[in-house]
Structure formats: structure tokens, C-alpha cells
Amino acid sequence: MKSDIILAGVGGQGILSIATILGAAALADNLYLKQAEVHGMSQRGGDVMSCLRLSSSPISSDLIPQGKADMIVSLEPMEALRYIQWLRPEGWIVTNTTPFVNIPNYPEQEGIADALSARARTVAFDMDTVAKEVATVRASNMVLLGAAAPFIGIPQEKIEDGIRTVFMPKGEKIVECNLAAFRAGVARSRSDEK
């Protein structure tokens, strides 16, 4: 098993929680893992990216080479496209379509939607709305994780265990809320795929 994932978003959106959950799941699944992230200045509303590498055999580099990523998982549509050079031709893009507009020159949303739909292997939907329906909008990162889950190569139950491990300190209610968002993401992704 080998899964090289680029996690993308805007500083503060919560991509690092996704990385933490997959980390816990991978550790429990006895997988090798490397996850590189950047702290500091970029976290203040700038673009943030994390390389997450999972494998059943040892991993050398903390960074994913260009053209080799299996998946881009993004909380923001333009941020998904920022790392397209890293994606292998048959790789998947799984992204939220709700734009995070904190710059004056944010591109036309149609152009971004076109670029995303030009690729066959793309799962893109409004994850904020799905999160709101089943939990709260703040759980949109768990909807994203759910939408990506079918392509990651870790059993869904193991990821759910990871969610429990990470959110347990915050209470049962928060755990259930995040699990609901995660499962809604999985369901939507499976139906889109068909």
C-alpha cells in the first residue's frame, strides 16, 4: 500500500486536523508515515500545504516529488489547483468548492470550476453545506476527509477510530458530530463516483 496525499487549504481552515487523524489511523494500522507541514507566518490566512505519505514499506522523503502524488485533498477550490504539478496523471482531486476569498484578486469562480471539471478524477462539491446539514459548518474538514476516504487505502473503520482518538478529549458530542460529517462525506463521494 502506498498513498501520497497533498493536503491543501488556507491557514486556519483545519487541514492539519485531517493530517492528525490520518496519522493516528496509520499508526494504528502499522503503516509507515511521513507528514510535512509548515508553521509560522503562512498560517496567518496564507496558502498552506502539507505532504502526507502513507506506505506499507519505509518512506524516504518527507516531500512528495512532482508528478507523483496520488491525491490532492483541499478545503478550498483554488488551493486544490495550486498543487496540480504534484499530481500524477491518474491521481484524484477531492476538494471543497466553497471559495475562501481573502484576497482582492481572487479569480473568477467559473474558471476554477472549469479547471477542476476538466479532469476526470475529481470529486468536488460544496462541503460547507453538507457539513451544515449534518453537523456544523466547522466540520467541513471532516466532510472532506470522508469524501477522500474511499481513495486513501486505509479502511474506513480505522479512519473513524482516528477521529474518535483525536476528538475524544473534546467530548462524545464533538466526536459524534465529526463522525456524522465524515460519513456524509463518504456517502456523497461514493454517489458522485458512480
Binding site: 488556507v10 491557514g11 507566518m41 503562512s42 498560517q43 496567518r44 490566512g45 496564507g46 496558502d47 516529488p65 512532482q66 508528478g67 507523483k68 483554488m78 488551493e79 489547483l81 495550486r82 496540480i84 504539478q85 504534484w86 499530481l87 496523471p89 481573502n102 484576497i103 484578486n105 481572487y106 479569480p107 474558471g111 476554477i112 479547471a115
Partner: peptide, 17 residues
């Protein structure tokens, strides 16, 4: 490895207060 072309539509998103 041949890598895909960078997207032309993406603009920089600098950090902010």
C-alpha cells in the same frame, strides 16, 4: 518524472493579519 503544467488561474495568497 513528467509533471503536469502549473495552473495559470491560481494567484498568490499572502498571509495577512
Amino acid at each position: 518524472t513528467e509533471a503536469p503544467e502549473a495552473s495559470q488561474i491560481v494567484v498568490p495568497r499572502p498571509p495577512a493579519l
